[in-house]
């Protein structure tokens, strides 16, 4: 470590002995902090939903208390247009995103990494083919493609999220490829080949684990945000999770019918939940990107 410090005077911060927290931008730390808070809230809500530790039953209608504002009676976040407890439905709404979103992320990262390594490390013929596939998926607006799949198969949310993952894979692939192209200029890859390390070790350990993991984590957080927004759009169009199973998308959609009467709360509450959650994932991704990948490092 010390030797490097003396040899390279150009990019000092890379070898700075200050802790990561101290040398990174304060705004980024706040962003990441907020993102981690949202991430833990999402995890807690998911667990609460799975364990069934909820303040009310999701379908319990309170006919005397419809569209109640937050803090009315025992309903902490009020009720929706059928008098169902808002907090309970918001917590259960996470379930519509959590596993499907994870599926989209796993597909996107798995396939994307595979394609990225193939085109970046092997190059040549594979690179041309993958660039072509990348450009073809870029030419298809995602929502149009999903509507095409909906028209053909009438699929459930898991298959839709699988398609979302497939369409996200080329973007991940091009990021991984760029990273590998950048790494190839460095000496350590050449050295590890010369040392006789197996290709598998080089790819999995030295390229993916040591050098691509932050990039992949960042893509995963952004992918979750996207899965939430896509499910919301699909719920609005009527192809997402169906009532009475709550998802934030169909809650906004159903509540929006009452907005014209001035009853904002039933659709605003889930809209706020989406806003805060998506914001959290975006800020987490961008903050981590700035801190770990050093985009804004001075």
């Amino acid at each position: 470590m010390k030797i490097k410090y003396i040899q390279h005077t150009k990019d000092v911060s890379q070898y700075s002995e200050l802790s990561l927290l101290k040398r990174s931008d304060k705004t980024d730390v706040v962003f990441v902090g907020y993102g981690l808070f949202i991430l833990s809230m999402v995890l807690i809500s998911y667990l609460l939903g799975v364990l069934g530790w909820l303040p009310f039953t999701a379908d319990d209608m309170d006919m005397d208390l419809m569209m109640a504002l937050p803090g009315t009676g025992s309903h902490i976040l009020g009720t929706d247009f059928l008098g169902r407890d808002m907090l309970t439905r918001l917590i259960l709404g996470i379930q519509a995103y959590f596993l499907p979103g994870l599926l989209a992320i796993v597909v996107a990262l798995g396939l994307g990494t595979f394609m990225g390594v193939l085109s970046g490390y092997r190059g040549g013929y594979a690179e041309t083919v993958i660039t072509y596939i990348n450009n073809v998926t870029d030419s298809l607006p995602r929502l149009v493609l999903i509507l095409l799949v909906v028209a053909a198969f009438k699929p459930d949310i898991y298959i839709i999220m699988f398609v979302v993952g497939l369409t996200n894979a080329p973007a991940v692939a091009s990021l991984v490829k760029d990273k590998i192209t950048f790494l190839k200029q460095k000496n350590f890859l050449e050295a590890s080949v010369a040392l006789g390390l197996s290709t598998r070790t080089i790819i999995f350990k030295h390229i993916l684990w040591y050098n691509c993991r932050t990039l992949l984590i960042i893509q995963a957080t952004l992918g979750m945000a996207e899965a939430i927004l896509i499910e919301t759009s699909l719920s609005y169009l009527g192809f997402g999770v169906q009532e009475p199973t709550p998802s934030w998308g169909n809650m906004i959609q159903a509540g929006a019918n009452y907005m014209m009467r001035g009853d904002f709360w039933p659709s605003t509450a889930p809209a706020l939940a989406i806003l805060l959650t998506v914001l959290g994932f975006h800020l987490l991704g961008d903050g981590l990107n700035n801190i770990l990948e050093g985009k804004r490092r001075k």
Binding site: T232, S233, Y236, Q253, A256, A271, L276
Partner: peptide
């Protein structure tokens, strides 16, 4: 960041409400 995280159709309904 925030304007991008709001579902666009909710923004649409809000716009209709405000304009009417």
């Amino acid at each position: 960041y925030m304007i991008s995280a709001i579902p666009v159709f909710w923004l649409g309904y809000l716009g209709i409400y405000l304009s009417t």
